[in-house]
Design a protein around this nucleic acid. Structure first.
Lengths: 230, 230
DNA sequence: TGTACATCAGTGAACGCGCGTTCACTGATGTAC
DNA sequence: TGTACATCAGTGAACGCGCGTTCACTGATGTAC
């Protein structure tokens, strides 16, 4: 194959894209492909409402997405790869939640507003949170480990955030990490309660919210008394 | 069939048992049956080290126990039934742990000795604790619900125990339950850390123990400041 | 104690089923000129 | 713009496999007398 001709072809393609009024990869074909990919992910999330990831089958997921089993391979090399993509999506949701929490003013109401952000996000993205919370401790090793890594990352970011509070300014890193771990545990437990409760039950939701706030206030009281040996 | 003859047979059996020097159901046949049953449970626990319960197959479990698949049905009507039996065994282990903890003197060292009991029991019964912790949030509904019921029971027993502490004597039931929930969360999280760590690594174990003690001390400080509205 | 019969844990063949994966294909969309 | 060719998402048949479950059986253990 002649190098010059390859170059010409590449440039022609690039010019074609630049000249067109569409972004790269936004043709009808690519769009349809992305829709099928999304349908596969949605199908999996649907099935995960009543089954664990380890119990999913590729054929079920494809069936739910309205495609033939072999079409699955056009999008993911394996079910496990789809699982990792679900983790990406789920933690994108979670990071959006953290950004929302950071926008809240850091006031005396910090506990209330943090719990509020959590409850609201779990409400709006049940299936993502359910996936993460359930597969965190059980299931396929690759999926489990990816989730744990993300949660550890999340906890250490939380520790960094905590270091900005006046009380906590001179805590040791270890103590901050310990406290962040405690808070993440509480958040996960609260998320589990929310997922167990009937969806769209404001009564159950506000009861859980009240309990979560109490737990965080109890921890906060401990924090005020703590003498970090950092 | 003649009623009188049936009665005679039944009584003869009862007399036979009473007269023999063996307890009922302790013949060679029954003993062998119990050994096979135990082998099936052990086989399942073995497989559960790297797989979730939902991913077990009856044939695998039977294979691991050294019996033919159909023999499984002589002991359990389904894999799910075996799962429920595993829960029984696991919580028997956990209740033994709680009894051990209650025998410890309630002193200033109560946190240290509680963590100590937990670490020791997880060390000695890894597979039971792993099963409970993993299947608690994922997996087969029947198994998951049975575990949650047991954990809720455990938490409310803990709340009762807590009510005996002087500081906590006039806390409201709700606050005691809330605090027990917090402690159970911490214990579960600690158990997860222990199961993640390399088995038989005293260094990892004592590091986790140290962290767990810190978390409990932090909570205890909060408790001392708490004003229950009970 | 000895004998004849009952019980029942474990066997092994057989079944139909859904699974993951392969392969050659189709036909709509995209590209070069 | 029109034509000829390339790309590639989705198809459908086919495969071998391990699965749960059924069934009639075997032979050691237990029981009656």
């Amino acid at each position: 194959m002649a190098t010059s001709s390859v170059k010409r072809v590449t440039m022609a393609r690039m010019n074609g894209r630049t000249a067109s009024d569409e972004l790269p990869n936004t043709g009808a074909r690519e769009e349809r492909k992305q829709r099928t990919r999304a349908a596969l992910l949605d199908s999996a999330l649907d099935l995960l409402e009543e089954r664990s990831f380890a119990a999913l089958s590729l054929r079920e997921v494809a069936r739910g997405a309205g495609v033939v089993p072999t079409a699955f391979y056009r999008h993911f090399p394996s079910l496990e790869a789809l699982g990792l993509a679900l983790i990406d999506d789920s933690f994108r949701t979670l990071r959006a939640m953290v950004r929302a929490a950071r926008r809240e003013p850091v006031a005396e109401q910090v506990i209330r507003s943090s719990v509020d952000v959590l409850v609201r996000h779990v409400h709006d993205h049940r299936s993502h949170f359910r996936f993460v919370v359930r597969e965190r401790s059980s299931g396929v090793p690759a999926v489990r480990n990816a989730i744990r890594t993300e949660i550890r990352l999340f906890a250490s970011e939380l520790a960094t955030d905590l270091a900005r509070f006046p009380y906590l300014r001179d805590w040791s890193t270890e103590d901050l990490t310990m406290m962040a771990g405690l808070l993440v545990n509480a958040m996960v437990a609260t998320t589990e309660s929310l997922l167990d409760a009937a969806p769209d039950s404001p009564a159950a939701e506000s009861e859980i919210r009240r309990l979560a706030e109490k737990q965080l206030r109890l921890v906060a009281l401990g924090v005020l008394q703590w003498r970090s040996e950092g």
